[in-house]
Design a protein around this nucleic acid. Structure first.
Length: 489
RNA sequence: CGGAACGUGGCGCAGCCUGGUAGCGCACUUGGAUGGGGUCCAAGGGGUCGGAGGUUCGAAUCCUCUCGUUCCGACCA
């Protein structure tokens, strides 16, 4: 049938709309198509589904041992924080008071209308932790007495709650998962070194496991953590050119030591304030993974943290040979698992193309197809998710099994390199407010790097608010002389 | 907290203006033909139309109130 109108159209994508058509909506659809999470009945909070949570578990499972290697000890502090604790540090309160959920009662009673209402008011209300500096500070003030107790390096994995005005799955939800490191040192040098070391660990982790790169640097004063002397950050660029702060480390100076009473007796016997730090990355990095790697056919999981690294797809037609193909697949799956890979043999009773698209949308890095042909030849057909059908390759079984690692590494390298070049290609240097204005006025995306003084130009504020810009970081590479300006999540 | 919209099977929507007892697509179930990048045909199951009140012989539809959600701003890992 002649259909010129249709034949000119782009090929059908698994995700509608495409990134180009509507990036925020595309992002939501990618999450849905990959079956990672959904909005919950609780305002601003999401339900992370098994496939999404498996990704987080892999992230935790890799990063946690790295923290321990650095000397971190894990612990757990209460979810609830007495209001008086939060009130101790002035800037900290200013920063977080507005977004705290407050627990004012315990116990429920019948309201006489078939529902329940809070019964007994608490003497002192609690806030649900928006972050744990104050309650960990209280503990540190008792645990630290002597310089011999320092450095103290603690971390907890958990979730926190911030009553956000506007939420988006993985990027900004009221409750989010994270780890929060809290350390105390004798002096500022120790605290600074901690911030920089951890920031480097974050960068290594993001590049080596999540396959994205970004800029390390120091935040400008207005972007600093409430209560910190300095905030360091890792800023990554999403495919729409917006910045996403993927991790931060904070040098809290002696601010929390003062307000919480974290003091130690030095070697010479003087009572001295400790220098503390805190640092974190959150489940937001999952948003980053998607917004950096995913394409118009859905998620692309970085191989080293992918919930499933390899999917085996049996291609079945003839009932008579089905058991033999399944046995072939089963053996392959066992062999690959024995090598330590996360393998899914998709034996669901579904049409093969549907299973294939499911694997595509979930972003499983490597797909293996096994039908009668492969079984008889002793081969497999494999396809890389990051390249697609053009990478379809037939390989002898033994060769494939010994080469899987190299293929997954190649996928990782490709994703990282794409992230690197995209970030580089969309970072431009400017010298003035006019350069920033011209860049975004022309419809370009990404980061503009300008000399730090540009932020002090009275004309900057107008441009900043017109394009919704903010200063992201003063990148280390320019030793604080420049600042990256961008739209941000 | 300002400005706008929307609540109808699991999901996405139409119906409302001009009241007559609920429909479409996807998903799901069953059967058959298919089967290596989204196949086709046929038969099915599933809904107190957000809630309360009112007008009416009769309300998803009209009126009043209420609850909730989303989007746009200010705030943010």
């Amino acid at each position: 049938m002649e259909n010129l109108a249709l034949s000119d159209k782009k090929p059908r994508t698994a995700i509608t709309p495409t990134r180009e058509d509507d990036f925020p909506e595309w992002f939501q659809q990618v999450i849905k198509a990959a079956d990672m999470a959904e909005n919950s009945p609780v305002r601003g909070c999401m339900t992370i589904k098994p496939y999404g949570y498996a990704l987080w578990e892999n992230i935790v499972g890799i990063f946690d041992p790295q923290l321990k290697e650095y000397g971190i000890q894990n612990c757990s502090f209460p979810l609830l924080i007495p209001v008086s604790f939060l009130a101790k540090e002035a800037e900290h309160v200013d920063g977080f008071a507005k977004e705290c959920a407050v627990v004012t009662h315990h116990r429920l009673k019948a309201d006489g209308k078939g529902g329940l209402e809070p019964a007994s008011p608490l003497e002192e209300p609690y806030v649900v932790r928006p972050t744990s500096e104050t309650i960990i500070g209280e503990a540190m003030s008792r645990w630290i007495q002597s310089y011999r107790d320092l450095p103290m390096k603690l971390n907890q994995w958990g979730s926190v709650l911030r009553w956000e005005m506007r939420t988006r799955m993985f990027l900004r939800t009221s409750e989010f998962f994270w780890h929060e490191g809290h350390c105390a040192f004798e002096d500022n040098a120790g605290a600074v070194k901690d911030c920089l070391t951890i920031l480097d660990m974050y960068e290594r982790f993001f590049e080596d496991y999540l396959a994205f790169s970004g800029y390390k640097g120091i935040k400008t004063a207005d972007e600093r953590f409430p209560g910190a002397d300095d905030t360091y950050a890792f800023e990554a660029m999403m495919q729409d050119g917006k910045a996403l702060q993927a991790a931060t480390t904070h040098n809290l100076g002696t601010n929390f030591a003062k307000s919480c009473g974290i003091k130690y007796q030095s070697k010479s016997g003087e009572e001295t304030l400790a220098h503390t730090t805190s640092w974190a990355f959150s489940s937001r990095v999952i948003g980053a993974i998607l917004m950096i790697h995913a394409d118009d056919d859905g998620a692309i999981m970085p191989p080293r943290v992918a919930p499933q690294q390899i999917v085996i797809l049996p291609v079945l037609k003839d009932d008579a040979v089905t058991p033999k193909i399944m046995e072939y697949c089963d053996t392959l799956a066992k062999d690959l698992k024995a090598q330590g890979y996360r393998v899914k043999l998709d034996d669901r009773d579904m049409r093969t193309p549907d299973k294939m698209w499911d694997a595509v949308k979930r972003g499983i890095p490597l797909r293996v197809e096994v039908g009668q042909r492969e079984m008889e030849e002793g081969t497999v057909t494999h396809v890389r998710r990051d390249i697609g059908r053009d990478s379809k390759t037939a390989a002898p079984l033994a060769e494939f099994k010994s080469g899987v690692g190299a293929i997954l590494d190649a996928i990782h390298d490709n994703l990282l390199e794409k992230s690197r070049s995209f970030t580089r290609d969309n970072t431009v240097e400017g010298k003035s407010v006019g350069d920033i204005d011209a860049h975004f006025k022309s419809g370009k995306i990404g980061f503009v790097k300008v000399p730090l003084e540009v932020l002090d130009d009275p004309a900057y504020e107008k441009v900043r608010s017109e394009y919704g810009l903010s200063s992201r970081v003063k990148p280390f590479e320019d030793e604080g002389r420049t600042v990256l300006v961008a739209r941000a999540y």
